[in-house]
Simulated scan of single mutants.
Amino acid sequence: MVLPHRLWKVAVCAALLTACAAPGPARPQPSPVSAEIPSAPTETAPYVDVSVRHPPLGSVVAKTPTRRFVLAFMLAKHSACAPAWAGSTPIDDPAVLGDIAAVRSAGGSVTLASGGATGTYLENACSTAAELAGAYRQALQTTGADRLELDVETAVRPDVVADALRIVHTELAVPVTITATVADAGSGLEQSTLDLLRALASRGTDVVVNAMVMNFPESGSWRESMLTAATTVAGQTGEIWPGNPYSRLGITYMAGRNDTGVLTTVDDAHALRDYAVAHAIAFLGFWSLARDNGNCADEVRASPVCSGLAQETYAFTRALRGR
């Protein structure tokens, strides 16, 4: 698991490979990029931890090519079935809505992320699927977010959650992402996550499966570990949904110092983007915007407000688009 402030990311792929890419070997290499593969993943976005100080999003839009942000995390307000940022800040907080307005005025958009590493989940506070769908609906309509993500890092009721997500996905035409931890590079997603994905598939709900390639045991180099984990998750996804598994794959990494001590460098970020482009995946993101600076170079413990690397500000944000 991670620091209390950590969490992440969603999108639906707009272009598919013409042939299915089977899961690769233990140490995958990015496929050659053909003319039919887009020059970047369909969606890229940094995560924004609204519970910590972060750069104004309007300023980030002005200084980087990013036009989407994942706002995290929405939790149960004082443990009740009502949405609130980090479980306490109102979902219509003026500062958050001001950030969203700045993004949208520049032609950008936001994803709303529920769940995370700590706190009481809406998914557990709401008694029924209808109540949970109502909480999602309220948050989406209040913020104007056009995508919904569930970052599931604790046990949830798969049938209740799947029913609620189906309601929102159908009624509001909101794309859905399931973000989940990786046990290790070879094992991929945990059984509880696979159970939730199967429940969604059985209801005909199409989702992006976003692998958190962070904070798991290293095997070989850390870069190889992250790439292998992504390929493993693609294989698991392909067993649930037929077709090209990469078309619904998402990857989210932790910029700089992970909670387990390993470092994800800017060069690693570019390698992950190369993999994303080669396989035309649905989403690429990182945790988190507040950490995308070099204000604590050589810090040996993960911080919510700096990467622990000597880096330029917004280096990871720019790397999402290969800049």
Rank of each mutant, 00 (worst) to 15 (best):
I37N: 12
G294N: 09
G308R: 03
Y253E: 09
W85Y: 07
K77P: 01
A102F: 10
L249V: 07
R257F: 04
S225Y: 01
I167G: 02
G322F: 08
P94W: 08
L189Y: 08
G188R: 07
A133K: 02
I240Q: 09
P158D: 11
E149D: 15
R223V: 03
V156L: 09
L189G: 05
A117H: 11
A290H: 02
T179K: 05
S105M: 13
Y275H: 09
I178C: 04
F283A: 15
Q236F: 01
R301Y: 15
D292I: 06
A125I: 05
E312R: 15
L263E: 15
T128V: 13
E131L: 08
L75K: 00
D184C: 01
G285T: 03
K77Y: 12
V300H: 13
G261C: 05
D49I: 05
E171I: 08
R67Y: 01
F69S: 01
L289V: 03
H279M: 13
A310W: 09
N244V: 07
D259T: 15
M212F: 12
S307A: 13
A290P: 06
N210Q: 09
A297F: 12
Q29A: 14
S59C: 12
D92Y: 01
A82Q: 05
D159V: 10
R68T: 05
D159K: 10
R166D: 04
A15Y: 13
E190L: 15
R257H: 07
R166C: 08
P41K: 01
A139S: 03
F316M: 11
A276P: 02
P23G: 10
